[in-house]
Write a protein that binds this DNA or RNA. Structure first.
Lengths: 212, 212
DNA sequence: CTCTCAGACTTACGGGCGTTAGCTTATGTC
DNA sequence: GACATAAGCTAACGCCCGTAAGTCTGAGAG
């Protein structure tokens, strides 16, 4: 793994009112570091600055500390995940069952395509030790709600159309379904090669959505 | 969180053939650091040495590098988990269904009781970046097999007794069941407060084991 | 053309880390 | 009691980290 930067040009300074642009570049740099295959520890304040082609202290006007960068990355990726799932949902043809599988498989594919991102989104090291940082509990609680809401909705459609067995607690069923997806997604994002049959994803979905 | 060591006595040196004792003390120190609530990063070579009351280089005769300590900790905890599950299984009265719930709930309880341990056992940061360390793939592959085998066995008994719907792939079903358990266990080990209904665990078990 | 200040940069401090090389000391043997 | 050696220590190297203090500079207003 080469960490060389090779910035030929020293990076043009932003225009006067566009200082905020750097914020996005910092997030992009952190994402790039993650995708390069290292673990979360590779994303330090200094390494991000190197990747972005700026000096380390130049980050401070935009982020209070390193966990804040992580939070911003996660927020951006959560939005990206939500968008991906919505698109998968919209493109699904063939009724509620197809929609459910499209959304769930979209989730699993996301985790497999971007394991490092998935790891920091759900279960990153920065979450538990948030004390004495600038991150609030509200920041964390609001993290995946949009994507989860979509799952609840699609599962609800399955119940309404009689494809899935009804239950007195749709929300709870959706939580259980997500937990199953998360178990598989996380495991795929952590180990090199996941043991078990290839259709484990479909089995999880079928069983946890109570499909008929 | 105070990291002070306050070693009043400078620790008595081990007897002549008992140098190996220190190995266990090192593992115990690493475990203690984990349980103190910090994340995995708190377990450094030097911090472990401090906790064990020895000098940092004294670790080298026992472990090649820091990941090796982690591996030893995980191996010990995997054995502890297996023992816990076996005990839960043995103490379960009331047939196959009770045995299955005892084992599964034992698993979930373990994760909730020792979140930091669970995190490094399944999905610790040290696993993906194992290159250029002294850890082999075989070390990692052999990690949870005993506990998983127990799960397969108990699930098989459920099928044999007609409590669970039969399938052509018992192993695959057990993988799916474990993935569901893992999703819940991991989430509980990562976030402070898990949303969703209290009986989510039972729902997962019932659905994924295909209980009648 | 000049001046201002947003948007950066340079330098530096203190601290933790992993690891190497060489030294000390207690323990059990003879 | 002397001595060999296992068990563990001290000192030191180089690296990377987060962060504070002060400095430069170029875009745009007048």
């Amino acid at each position: 793994m080469v960490t060389a930067v090779t910035n030929t040009e020293p990076r043009r300074r932003n225009r006067r009112g566009e200082g905020g642009k750097l914020r996005d570049e910092i997030i992009a740099a952190a994402l790039a570091l993650l995708d390069e295959g290292g673990d979360e520890r590779a994303v330090t304040l200094r390494s991000v600055a190197r990747k972005a082609g700026i000096a380390a202290p130049s980050i401070y006007p935009h982020f209070a500390d390193q966990p804040s960068i992580m939070l911003a990355v996660v927020q951006r990726e959560m939005d990206a995940l939500t968008a991906t799932l919505r698109e998968a949902d919209d493109n699904a043809a063939g009724g509620a069952r197809a929609r459910l599988f499209a959304v769930c498989n979209g989730y699993l594919d996301f985790a497999q395509a971007h394991p490092q991102r998935y790891r920091i989104m759900f279960g990153g090291l920065w979450t538990p030790s948030v004390e004495d940082t600038s991150i609030t509990d509200a920041d964390l609680d609001s993290l995946g709600v949009e994507a989860f809401t979509l799952l609840v909705e699609v599962l609800g459609v399955c119940v309404d159309e009689g494809i899935a067995h009804a239950s007195d607690d749709l929300y709870g069923d959706a939580v259980a379904l997500w937990l199953g997806l998360h178990g598989l997604a996380h495991q795929r994002a952590v180990v090199r090669k996941m043991p078990g049959p290839a259709d484990v994803g479909d089995r999880l979905i079928t069983a946890l959505a109570h499909l008929k």
